[in-house]
């Protein structure tokens, strides 16, 4: 958990992308992405469909290779075979062998993973409860998800990559699976990167955010810091255009309704003048950035790729 965060060095960053790009045919699914994800974070990966979320997860899970740049997990390039054991991946449709029994599925986990933790996997399955002898093909969506998560956590990964883990689940299963995910991540100290369309879920489950649009990073960093960097300002609309006190800041988006002027701004110092400034919600910030492709991306200090590592090598 928080207290057991690994010390500095390569292990401090669960994921680090430098100039990462992926092209399918002529289309760039991901382009020039550079960011960091600190170890121990539970990070929401958000963005529109086709923005590059699944591509990023696929790159980290070694299902596909980057066209440009590099991606490293805990300081090790994804091209190295050893990252396989440190990271678990759950595809959106949670593929499993339908004719295997639950027990055989867990045996597969044991056979293919040297660090397999049988106790953890069986605890997750049994608390479902998912009967050990049942065929996977006969399980409900929630039970399948539970089994897939058991397989992922049984691997004892340091990084867990989830592609829309809660999509297509009924509300009860969604709640159960989300709770399971959070509790196991807390107990094992797993770093989690999960893509999701449910902003409410992201807001409660995640402490970090990675927003992508059009294959590029728009927001990255701790959610608290990202929200604190922004203000939603409201006031009377007296002059044409953006009022000068507001224009000093980076205006993400603004609109006027009658005599009311509302803007989402990235603060450069305190907001002066006769403005009502409140901290925006995650949804407001996120939608603002996704709607305004012209606004420069924001990466908090934690999420920025610096050259400290290379500096160390040189020194």
């Amino acid at each position: 958990m928080g207290g057991t965060a690994p010390p500095g060095g390569g292990d401090r960053w669960a994921m680090e992308a430098r100039g990462l790009g992926k092209r399918y045919g002529r289309k760039w699914a991901l382009r020039d992405c550079s960011f960091r994800l600190p170890a121990g974070a539970i990070c929401g990966l958000v963005g529109s469909n086709g923005a590059g979320k699944s591509t990023l997860l696929s790159l980290a899970a070694r299902l596909t290779r980057p066209t440009t740049g590099g991606l490293s997990l805990f300081g090790t390039a994804v091209t190295e075979d050893e990252v396989l054991a440190r990271c678990a991946y759950l595809a959106q449709d949670k593929p499993l062998f339908p004719r295997f029994t639950v027990e055989e599925t867990l045996r597969m986990g044991a056979e293919l993973n040297p660090r397999w933790d049988r106790a953890v996997a069986e605890r997750i399955v049994r608390s479902g409860p998912v009967p050990m002898g049942d065929r996977v093909g006969t399980l409900s969506g929630g039970q399948r998800s539970r089994l897939a998560l058991a397989l992922a956590f049984g691997k004892r990964p340091e990084l867990l990559l989830l592609d829309e883990p809660m999509a297509e689940l009924d509300p009860l299963s969604q709640h159960e699976i989300a709770g399971l995910l959070m509790a196991e991540a807390a107990e094992q100290g797993t770093t989690v990167l999960m893509s999701s369309h449910q902003l409410a879920d992201v807001a409660t489950m995640c402490d970090h955010l990675l927003a992508v649009a059009d294959g590029r990073v728009r927001l990255a960093g701790a959610i608290d810091e990202l929200l604190d960097a922004h203000r939603l300002v409201t006031g009377a609309y007296l002059v044409d255009g953006v009022p000068p006190e507001i224009a000093r800041h980076t205006v993400v988006e603004s609109r006027t309704t009658g005599r009311q002027f509302t803007a989402l701004i990235r603060r450069q110092g305190p907001v002066e003048g006769d403005w009502r400034a409140t901290e925006p919600s995650l949804e407001e910030v996120l939608l603002g950035y996704l709607r305004s492709p012209g606004t420069p991306p924001l990466l908090t200090a934690d999420a920025q790729v610096t050259d400290e590592h290379e500096g160390e090598v040189a020194a």
């Binding site: 299902l63 396989l84 991946y89 499993l96 597969m108 691997k155």
Partner: peptide, 13 residues
């Protein structure tokens, strides 16, 4: 079935 994604993301290459 997509199980290729399952098998190739275990600890073996």
């Amino acid at each position: 079935r997509g199980t290729l994604k399952l098998v190739t993301t275990q600890s073996m290459t």
